[in-house]
Design a protein around this nucleic acid. Structure first.
Lengths: 136, 136
DNA sequence: TAATCTTTGCAATCGAGTTGCAGTAAATCC
DNA sequence: GGATTTACTGCAACTCGATTGCAAAGATTA
């Protein structure tokens, strides 16, 4: 397991206090985190600093962003070797009744064959509807 | 071809001046329209009235909404027999450089097998990256 | 050390979406 | 038909996530 400092060094992001704690938080969470999630978790760190940190991280492929239908962009640390290609990509199911987001790991996503010379950076597959609990 | 009035009658939406012009505009456009698009096209109609009209239309399955990666919800008239099931569904490709959205009609989307008792209402498949013109 | 560049924190702003409210129009009831 | 209720509209204001301007603090380079 790499330390935050090692990851930042590899990804060529200068290490600072804010960056370390943001990255540490992201690494410690199982689920992708929104800006608000991070802000709440890091009580004494300014929102805009976190925001700019996330932008920097994204730019340098430390993390990638995810649209899961909730309306808030979520962020997760890139797995080793991740070029943010949709590899461990999965559908997100957003329940329009209870506002919960489900990761549908079992539903396969086929390889997306883009037109000639298009470059893939990110993919978001969001399905909305009612979850089993709300569909009664 | 049905008139706006006929469509509204079939979908059980009371006909009003605002609703007629909003529906007429949507029918006249090739591309799905955002609230702002409609607002700009209908200079003397209030934004919130258009907004509420769109909500009403969506509720009564006159139109469906689409997230295409642009950050603005787009709306399009349902095709005949459309239950807003992802049937004529296609990927959207959003170019992060020039901000254009492309409809990828040629890329197939497989049937999405949801978990037991989940109900599908809508699906949005958004791919982001660089279009051929910006990928140079 | 001085000059320069980067990062940070605060406050302010943006923009899409949404809501409260009062006035008007349409539908319903007696 | 007139009164009452319900629905629709326009305006202004507000929400909330995202983003930016700016000055102070910190790090880097000359």
């Amino acid at each position: 397991m790499q330390t935050e400092e090692e990851i930042l060094k590899i990804k060529k992001v200068k290490n600072t206090a804010v960056r370390t704690v943001v990255l540490r938080h992201l690494l410690s969470q199982e689920k992708a985190q929104s800006l608000k999630d991070i802000e709440n978790a890091l009580a004494y760190t300014d929102r805009s600093s976190i925001f700019r940190t996330l932008k920097k991280f994204e730019e340098n492929k430390v993390i990638h962003s995810i649209e899961d239908g909730s309306g808030m962009t979520k962020y997760a640390v890139c797995a080793k070797g991740c070029n943010c290609d949709p590899k461990d990509l999965h559908y997100h199911f957003y329940c329009t009744n209870c506002d919960k987001t489900f990761c549908l790991f079992d539903v396969p996503i086929p390889k997306i064959q883009l037109p000639e010379n298009f470059k893939l950076q990110q993919a978001n597959m969001v399905v909305k509807g009612l979850c089993d609990n709300c569909n009664k």
